[in-house]
Design a protein around this nucleic acid. Structure first.
Lengths: 194, 194
DNA sequence: TCTTTTTTTGAATTACAAGTCAAATTCCTA
DNA sequence: TAGGAATTTGACTTGTAATTCAAAAAAAGA
């Protein structure tokens, strides 16, 4: 990759970060291309040099953030952890992303309302992959006798749903710090699996 | 109330129901006044005869649905139930609203992104009132020794968050029926409080 | 430095949806 | 059933934001 390509790649990522930020703050529909550009001291015309349109921009944001999250959670499988511990850490990682990126599932609770046909498919697929890491941990835990639950998928939905909601109320100025919230959530949500 | 006023009141409510439906389906920003009117075989001009603007329409939807939900849940206090049972039923009622009205908290995860100053205040206040019914049940349960939990507010957030997320995945054509989901959720979320 | 390629700009275009309003229609009541 | 009040209409105005694009500016290479 040439210097130029690297620069362009870095710029693309900067744009994605900025877009995530503005979209998280204002919501997808309220975040204008101008807002996103302004955040980086650019003009909106430039954005179209890097991304086909607003939808693609959002799609790439989603992809970037989910990929990062997946990588981190998949890393847990290389450590030697009990299923409980693995799940606790996975929940904490998920919360970390939810709080810091204010995105992941939340901005796009309903992909159908935003994306076009093809992207919906891809987004749902990616989400499935993400969610299935949690399923895998649950399966392992059930197989190993650490967890005891009948409706595994629903349990996973409860855990991720509860975690996603944090985004709605959490504020760094609030009573609880980020780490505390992560700890308390992980502990209590784990109870669902026992 | 004269016949005319009654008719107008009924019409207003019909509009609110239609609006809830369309907004739940398309999202607030994608639901146009024309869509909402079309659902009732009206034209959008008429909507403005009944409601000042789109924001007011949304606000009233929110109010209507939350009020119905609150009434139902508050009704539980007149029955002689254990705290566990009360909480289980409250969760089921909440889920019923989430599934049938596809609304309550969800359409408006972030009121700040939609409402103007004054309405934000009112919406948040109403939500607080709603949430505090759950807090009351938790408090009672803790006082009576049925529940054992340190972070009460956070526990409530987990429960409502998990429940709200149902809206994202539930489909009547899916594997589980509405009643089953309600039962399973209520049982498992209760574990958080034990 | 000069030329070429990449990147940025900002003005123009386009589309869409909120909100307005005078006129038409429907409904009530005397 | 005529007249006035309530309701509905649909064409119009207005504002906003996505997208395009030719031209300008910046960067790279020779």
């Amino acid at each position: 990759m040439s210097l130029r390509e690297k620069k362009a790649a870095r710029k693309k990522e900067e744009i994605l970060r900025s877009a995530s930020l503005v979209i998280a703050r204002n919501g997808y529909q309220n975040a204008t291309m101008e807002d996103i550009a302004a955040e980086l001291l650019m003009t909106k015309g430039s954005l179209y040099y890097y991304f086909k349109n607003k939808e693609e921009l959002l799609y790439k944001c989603h992809e970037l953030i989910l990929s990062c999250a997946m990588e981190r959670i998949e890393g847990l499988f290389f450590e030697n952890l009990s299923s409980k511990e693995k799940m606790k850490r996975a929940i904490k990682i998920h919360l970390d992303i939810v709080i810091r990126e204010k995105e992941v599932f939340n901005l796009i609770g309903k992909p159908e309302q935003i994306f076009s046909e093809e992207n919906i498919r891809k987004v749902l697929k990616k989400r499935d992959e993400y969610a299935s890491i949690f399923d895998k941990i649950i399966d392992e835990g059930v197989a190993g006798g650490e967890f005891s639950i009948n409706q595994k998928k629903m349990a996973r939905m409860m855990i991720l749903g509860a975690a996603n909601w944090v985004q709605v109320w959490y504020s760094p100025e609030g009573k609880y710090g980020k780490e505390e919230v992560e700890e308390i959530y992980a502990d209590n949500l784990l109870k669902i699996l026992l």
